[in-house]
Design a protein around this nucleic acid. Structure first.
Length: 333
DNA sequence: CACCCGTGGAC
DNA sequence: TGTCCAAGGGT
C-alpha cells in the first residue's frame, strides 16, 4: 500500500468520523440512500432525513413499492428533487434485478449514480476498490499536489480521477475513502483549514508554499439572473388549491401554489396578497402571490387540499413557508 | 462545456 | 444581507 493511503487510513481510524448513521450496520441500501442524500448537501442537514427515510423505507423492496407522493413528501425540504425520483427508480431497478449491483459499470447504469457515487458505493458498501472524487477530494488533492485549475475544468478533473485511481488502495478502501471525506470535512476545509492537525502536512505542496487557501482556484463567478414567478392563492372553505408540478424543471414532482404566466388574464382581475424573494443556486426568484377576484376552476393536475393535509404533502420550502405564514396571519386555526 | 437543479449552514 | 459552498448527476 502507498504511504499516502496508509496515512489517510491510520488517521481515519484514530481521528475520523465513526458515528454517522449510515455507518452503523452498513448495507448497500443504506449507502445508496445516504450517498444520494449527501449529493451537494451537508451531513448535518441529511441526518434527520436519513433517519426518517430508513424508518419508513427500511429496504429496497419497501421503497420500490412506495407511491411517488410519499417518496416526495419524505424528501421535501432537502432540495434537488430529481434525486428522490432517481432513488425511487433505483430501488425499482434493483428490486427488478434481484440483487444489488456491485461493479462500477452496473452501478453507473442506475439513475442518480454517477462516477463518484458508484465509487462511494463500492468503497462504503463493499469495502472494495472504488476511487472517489468529490468536493472534499478535489480540495485535498489540489492542495496536496498544488494542482492548478478550478472545479469543472476537464484537464483538472481528469488529473484528479487519475490520482484517485492511483492512490486508492486495493485493501481497506472503505476506511481510505472515509478518511478522504473526513479530512476534507474536518481539517482540509474550504475556509480556515486546520493544517496543524493534518496527517498529510509534511508532504502537502500548498502548505509548503504557504498558499493552502489559494487551492483550488475559485470558479469564475457569473451574474445570477432574476426571474419572476406568479402564484395563485385560492381558498375554498378550509381548502387550498394546489397543483402538481411537472417532473422536470424547478421543484419538479412537488405540489405548489398554481403558477401562472405573467401575461395570464387571471392576473388582470386579481389582488396581490403577498410576495417573497428566494435564492436558488442559479437564479433569484421574485415571487408574487395573487388572489383572483373571480371564481377559479381547478385545471388538470390541480386539486383541493385541506390545511391539515399540508404537513404530509411535498411542498417547496419557500412556498410552504409563505403558506404557513399566510394561514397564521389570516387567523385560521 | 455550460447549464439546470434547492436548501440551509457558516461566516 | 451577501456570498460561498456542501459525500454530484443529468442533459
Amino acid at each position: 500500500m502507498n504511504d499516502f493511503a496508509q496515512q489517510v487510513i491510520d488517521w481515519q481510524q484514530q481521528q475520523g468520523r465513526h458515528d454517522l448513521p449510515w455507518q452503523q450496520a452498513i448495507t448497500p441500501y443504506k449507502v445508496l440512500v445516504s450517498e444520494l442524500m449527501l449529493q451537494q448537501t451537508q451531513v448535518s442537514t441529511v441526518i434527520p432525513y436519513f433517519q426518517r427515510w430508513l424508518a419508513r423505507f427500511p429496504d429496497v423492496e419497501t421503497l420500490a413499492q412506495a407511491e411517488q407522493d410519499e417518496v416526495m413528501a419524505l424528501w421535501q425540504g432537502l432540495g434537488y428533487y430529481a434525486r428522490a425520483r432517481n432513488l425511487h427508480k433505483a430501488a425499482k431497478a434493483i428490486a427488478e434485478l434481484g440483487a444489488f449491483p456491485s461493479d462500477l459499470v452496473s452501478l453507473q447504469q442506475i439513475p442518480g449514480i454517477g462516477r463518484y457515487t458508484a465509487g462511494a458505493i463500492l468503497s462504503f458498501a463493499y469495502d472494495a476498490y472504488g476511487p472517489i472524487v468529490d468536493g472534499n477530494v478535489r480540495r485535498l488533492f489540489c492542495r496536496y499536489f498544488a494542482l492548478e485549475g478550478h472545479a469543472g475544468q476537464s484537464q483538472l478533473e481528469k488529473r484528479l480521477w487519475q490520482l484517485a485511481e492511483q492512490l486508492t488502495p486495493a485493501q481497506n478502501n472503505r476506511r481510505f475513502a472515509q478518511g478522504l471525506l473526513d479530512l476534507g470535512a474536518t481539517l482540509c476545509t474550504a475556509r480556515k483549514p486546520d493544517c496543524e492537525r493534518c496527517p498529510l502536512q509534511a508532504d502537502c505542496q500548498a502548505y509548503r508554499l504557504q498558499q493552502v487557501e489559494h487551492f483550488p482556484r475559485p470558479k469564475p463567478k457569473k451574474v445570477k439572473p432574476s426571474k419572476e414567478g406568479h402564484f395563485l392563492w385560492v381558498q375554498q372553505q378550509d381548502q387550498l388549491l394546489l397543483e402538481q408540478r411537472p417532473d422536470s424543471g424547478i421543484w419538479s414532482s412537488l405540489l405548489a401554489l398554481p403558477q401562472v404566466d405573467p401575461a395570464d388574464p387571471v392576473l388582470q382581475q386579481a389582488e396581490s396578497v403577498g410576495s417573497f424573494r428566494h435564492q436558488f443556486s442559479h437564479y433569484q426568484l421574485e415571487a408574487t402571490i395573487w388572489q383572483p377576484q373571480q371564481q377559479v376552476e381547478e385545471l388538470a393536475g390541480q386539486g383541493w387540499y385541506h390545511r391539515r393535509q399540508l404537513t404530509e404533502v411535498a411542498l417547496p420550502a419557500p412556498i410552504r413557508k409563505w403558506i404557513e405564514q399566510q394561514l397564521k396571519q389570516s387567523g385560521v386555526d
